[in-house]
Design a protein around this nucleic acid. Structure first.
Lengths: 154, 154
DNA sequence: CCGAAACAGGACCATTCAGGTCTTTAATTA
DNA sequence: TAATTAAAGACCTGAATGGTCCTGTTTCGG
């Protein structure tokens, strides 16, 4: 599967969504927009803030906004921020393998890692903007656009 | 981190090592060569056999050998065999997202997935052959080449 | 003919780690 | 001063991976 973590997935979605709003947006609001649970959104946002992807404003009327344009954020950089270094194996950078495994392939993995990394660096968040959103999902977004529905459960 | 599973890691190592031997090799022997625990080697080998990467010979004097050349095996195919489909997110093939997440990015992920997959398909196991093995690991391999040390614990 | 060696297949357990929640603190604004 | 909101971190839970073991079947050697 080689799948990336859900947190990284969320991070990308959140950033793209944040880029579509103007002004600061609170994490509860982003939770509604993205459908991700509020605490998780807050958690992701904190990480993104620490890595300079978003700017935070505390206090009342506070919230988050993008630190720079989506075009200036690569998928690779976001994943690296949330999940750490992008590497397909524990055997990175020519160092010996984790368990002293006598794989003898140490250097070879870097070929793969580099290839993957450069592939991901070539994809900006701007290019992740939805051209054609899933129809089933569109209705949900519209439904949530009513601002006052946020308060229901809280 | 986007790291692939350890099983897939093992599979690649085992295949490369198997390609360096001639004749059939038993899984205990491969365990010694690779440093991976025997039961795990056997497990990986079974999967590889089921997917046609290796040929098995049962009974005494049995063992495994490559079904085809390392050059004819891509990293992508091995990973797919061991771990299943290569995909960076649950949102694959344009289907709607898993939890009805209103990400609205559905189609965009495929760009990434395709890029990763083709990158990995372009790397053959032959190119994973060690040109310069880690020095710390080389000694370990030499030490294990003495055939009778295998019997110790068994 | 019998026993050992080795693969086949599956069940099973344990550990790890990611995901998610909650609590407290600090800052900002009205 | 009170209310709102982000910041930070501790903590719990659950799924999934990794790893082990058991039983059966096949083949070779004595």
């Amino acid at each position: 599967m080689l799948k990336l973590s859900r947190l990284a997935d969320y991070a990308i979605v959140i950033l793209v969504k944040l880029g579509e709003q103007d002004g600061v947006v609170t994490s509860p609001a982003l939770a509604v927009i993205t459908g991700v649970p509020e605490p998780t959104v807050a958690k992701v946002l904190k990480v993104l803030s620490a890595h300079g992807f978003v700017l935070s404003q505390r206090g009342a009327k506070g919230g988050y906004r993008l630190a720079r344009s989506l075009a200036d954020m690569s998928v690779a950089s976001v994943i690296a921020a949330v999940d750490g270094q992008i590497a397909l194996t524990a055997c990175v950078g020519g160092r010996e393998c984790d368990t002293g495994l006598s794989c003898g392939l140490c250097g070879s993995w870097d070929v793969i890692n580099t290839a993957i990394r450069s592939t991901l660096e070539g994809i900006s968040l701007e290019s992740m903007r939805p051209k054609e959103a899933c129809p089933t999902v569109l209705s949900q977004i519209n439904k949530l656009n009513a601002p006052h529905t946020v308060r229901e459960g809280a």
